[in-house]
Design a protein around this nucleic acid. Sequence first.
DNA 1: ATGAAAGCGCTAACAG
DNA 2: CTGTTAGCGCTTTCAT
Lengths: 339, 339
Amino acid sequence: MHSGHVTIKDMARILGVAPSTVSRALQGHPDISAETRRVVRELAEKMKYQPNIVAQGLKFRRSNTIGVIIPEIVHYFFSQVISGIEDVAYNAGYTVIFCQSNEKYDREAGNVKALMAHRVEGILVSVSKETSDFQHLRDVRENGIPLVFFDRVAPGIPADQVVTNDREAACMATLHLAGQGRKKIAHFAAPQNLLIGRERRQGYLEALARAGLPFDPTLYTEADSFEKAQREVHRLIAEGHLPDAIFGTNDLTAIGAMKALISAGISVPGRVAVAGFSDSRFAEVTEPTLTSVDQHGFEMGTLATQLLLKRIHAEEKEYPFETRIVKADLVIRNSSMAP
Amino acid sequence: MHSGHVTIKDMARILGVAPSTVSRALQGHPDISAETRRVVRELAEKMKYQPNIVAQGLKFRRSNTIGVIIPEIVHYFFSQVISGIEDVAYNAGYTVIFCQSNEKYDREAGNVKALMAHRVEGILVSVSKETSDFQHLRDVRENGIPLVFFDRVAPGIPADQVVTNDREAACMATLHLAGQGRKKIAHFAAPQNLLIGRERRQGYLEALARAGLPFDPTLYTEADSFEKAQREVHRLIAEGHLPDAIFGTNDLTAIGAMKALISAGISVPGRVAVAGFSDSRFAEVTEPTLTSVDQHGFEMGTLATQLLLKRIHAEEKEYPFETRIVKADLVIRNSSMAP
DNA sequence: ATGAAAGCGCTAACAG
DNA sequence: CTGTTAGCGCTTTCAT
């Protein structure tokens, strides 16, 4: 009992039997006599023996562990995803090593290294905003470790993916605004180096086209935070380009816009309708409540983990990679009602 | 290269040297010749050798891993805490195993077992609402594994703790409402089997006493969710017991109350002032913005992890346990302005 | 039915 | 300077 943990050897010594006997008794091996089994199990109980799963892992070359790399856990969406991941992993007897990249490339690369060193059996990752070199992720694959991307994928890396139908959902949201009779629909977009930013913008443009509305460059701007959205609203007002609807690339952006409008005395949705993306819990709480797109984070997490475990347990690792789309839903609330 | 991972043995065989030589070369042991070191390192580089930290751990009886058990990650507060935990752990070269109890006792006990089996060097835990038997946590201590509680502690277990000054902060919030001229201050409380629920209630009562206000049982009720708060507001209105202020035991409760009031045509803060607890990102986003108590989740996470690592690395494990209080701040916003 | 031995990957005495 | 050996905790042949 040197390190505080009881080992099989400890128990073997006490009982005057071989370690292998104890091991077998514990696993209910048929060769072991009922009596021995009873004695061993009683002692294990009494000494609070906990099998060392790490040592087992070394033996079987398995760690019963998967790794997750998330940009920032404090976003509701990501916290939902990891909740789904943990849930599936727990029920499958897997343990989750949690890493945060903080949207930094260096940190992400460090996380990958740490996970590999710990011999995780697979990795779930949503790539950081800063990452443009993907060698560290390619290394994972070259080591034969299964990789699953969720939400933010790295281009050109062979791996399963779980994503949202961003383009379609953005299109849906914009069409909804158009359907409420809005003609001058603005888009507050995410940076265009992010796939997600491009996709949502595309959806917006597609919706304009489908609704027969012209694209007005003065109503398109990159602004993807609460503060930036407020600034942009003030600018639009000052320049006399007030739209009659705003589609924000995420909820905080939409809410920032909404608040700026309201505090400028512009009614929402009366004068300007607003819709967001990535249904956060915020949406139910604002005044008016915010129309937004629900990405189903929890389900993305569970699905991604199922794909990962499936690949981990597959005999033949090389079956084709899957891209699964978790369809987002438009949740219509008060901020986008007809005027 | 059996399992996809390069081992020291693999490299030794290729170079025709002993495994120990490779091991030493890799660690920069002074005995090894510059030439050998170079050759070994080059090969390691080329083969993308990743040290198996698990095997190292077996050798040294260390896992470089700590475990975290959190009730539900989707709460902003808890996501902040775990962000702080991950940050400190990462910088200390530790890996974090993440578990969620989902507020269930069984799950929490299962989490503890899994963490012990993985030989984590220490555990950070915030106990689930359902937990009233603490034997699983006592087992952790009896195995000599350091334990640190954050936010929600288990009574009578020897461990370091990081908590909020709930009572004081609740008192502060209530006094603030009184200071705005409110006389009939209601409290929507958490279940009283939770220490936090009791503490916040105590703070509320203390503030009433200090402000010379009587305690009115009709203005006290257990309601700790968005929906319950809305129901309670409707009940208070129906029964003609409308308070002129409400202190909610958490932000969602406060916001639920606020929304119910507003939709009943009762102005906030004009007619009823509202304050919450555990400053979530919600608070900045509601209309009016919500006065609330900021619990500094990130700092609680970093501090708890520092305490844990300190104990893990201590020669003498038995120094006195610390209880550290991370002082909460009252953040005054619009929902509690004077009428 | 049980024991002895070997090995998972790594490192540290202990020899040379 | 480098190799040999043993052992961390566990399991599994192979003996007996």
